[in-house]
Write a protein that binds this DNA or RNA. Structure first.
Length: 272
DNA sequence: CTCTACCCCTGTCTGC
DNA sequence: TGCAGACAGGGGTAGA
C-alpha cells in the first residue's frame, strides 16, 4: 500500500487524533521487522506526549520533547486507529495505546517495515540523511535532475525510483508518471533533456497529487473500519494493465522487468 | 562512486 | 482441489 500518497494520507488522518496526546503503554507482539525493534522502545515512549508528526519521503516521524520515533511501512504496513480495547488484528505487531482511549496499530504481514527510536534529530539518522528532495519541494527541479543525471548511467525509471534522486516515487507512480510524460521507462538517463525532465517533474507531481486525493477519499474508512485502500487504482493508466490497450492510442501495453520491478508502458506513446 | 542481484517475509494467484 | 513457483506497491547492502 504505502507509496508516498498513502503515507501522506495516513499522516493527515491520524494526526488530529494523536497530536498532543500522551502514550500510556506500548504493546510489542513481534519485534522482528526489517530491523529488530530496540528493546527499550516501549520504555522510551511510555508517558511521552507526541508534539509533532511529519513525513520525510515514505518515513513517518513522531516527535517528542526529547527523541523521536521513525516508522516506515515497508510494502505491506498499515497504521490503523482503533479503540484501545479492540481485539488484536492479524499481523498487528505493535500497538501504541493513548491516554484518550485510542490505539494506533502497526499492522504489517510481510514485516518489511521499520520502527526506530532516535534520541537526537531523526533527519540525521543514516536512513534519512541521504534522501533526495521531496517531490513537492522547490529543490526538485529540472536543473537539479539534469545535474544528478550526469553522474548516472541507469534508465530513467530506475533513476526516479531511487530515493537518493527524489523521495517517495515508488513503482506504480514511476510507471504512471513516465506514461503521462510520454517517456520510455528504459530511456537512458544521460539522454534525457532538461525540457523532458521538466515534463517528468510535472507528471510526477500530478500523479502523486492525484494519489493523495484518491487515497484521502476512503482513508477515513481505512483508518477506522475495514482497511480499504483508497481509489487511486481506478486512476492507473498503465500499472497493472499489461496486454490491455493503451487508453490514448489503443496499442497493446507492454510489460518488462526493469531492475527487478515490473514495468508497464505504451511502446508507441512513450519515446525512447 | 555506481550498478546489479539478492534478501528480508507472508499472502495470493497461476499453471500444472 | 492440491501444490509448486512466481510475484507483490520498499529499500538496504554485498560485491562487481
Amino acid at each position: 500500500m504505502p507509496e508516498l500518497p498513502e503515507v501522506e494520507t495516513t499522516l493527515r488522518k491520524i494526526k488530529p487524533f494523536i497530536l498532543e496526546k500522551q502514550i500510556s503503554r506500548v504493546i510489542i507482539r513481534q519485534n522482528k521487522l526489517r530491523f529488530v525493534i530496540q528493546p527499550d522502545l516501549a520504555t522510551k515512549l511510555t508517558t511521552k506526549k507526541i508534539i509533532g508528526i511529519s513525513r520525510r519521503g515514505k518515513y513517518l516521524i513522531f516527535s517528542f520533547k526529547s527523541g523521536a520515533m521513525i516508522i516506515h511501512l515497508g510494502m505491506s504496513g498499515k497504521l490503523l486507529l482503533l479503540p484501545e480495547n479492540h481485539m488484536p488484528m492479524k499481523h498487528e505487531h505493535v500497538t501504541f495505546v493513548f491516554k484518550n482511549g485510542l490505539a494506533l496499530c502497526y499492522i504489517d504481514q510481510r514485516k518489511f517495515g521499520a520502527i526506530l527510536w532516535v534520541d537526537d534529530n531523526p533527519l540525521t539518522h543514516p536512513l534519512l540523511k541521504s534522501l533526495g528532495p521531496e517531490p513537492f519541494s522547490q529543490e526538485f527541479s529540472a536543473k537539479y535532475l539534469l545535474a544528478q543525471a550526469k553522474k548516472r548511467k541507469t534508465s530513467v525509471k530506475q533513476f526516479i525510483m531511487d530515493s537518493h534522486t527524489v523521495t517517495g516515487v515508488g513503482n506504480i507512480y514511476a510507471a504512471e508518471a513516465l506514461f503521462l510524460a510520454k517517456i520510455h521507462p528504459e530511456k537512458k538517463i544521460n539522454t534525457v533533456t532538461q525540457a523532458e525532465f521538466a515534463k517528468l517533474i510535472t507528471a510526477i507531481k500530478t500523479v502523486l497529487r492525484l494519489g493523495i486525493k484518491k487515497g484521502g477519499a476512503t482513508i477515513k474508512d481505512f483508518a477506522f473500519l475495514n482497511g480499504s485502500i483508497g481509489s487511486f487504482q481506478n486512476e492507473m493508466k498503465v500499472y497493472g494493465r499489461e496486454n490491455l490497450p493503451c487508453l490514448v492510442c489503443k496499442t497493446i501495453l507492454k510489460s518488462k522487468r526493469l531492475g527487478q520491478r515490473s514495468t508497464v508502458y505504451c511502446p508507441r506513446c512513450q519515446k525512447n
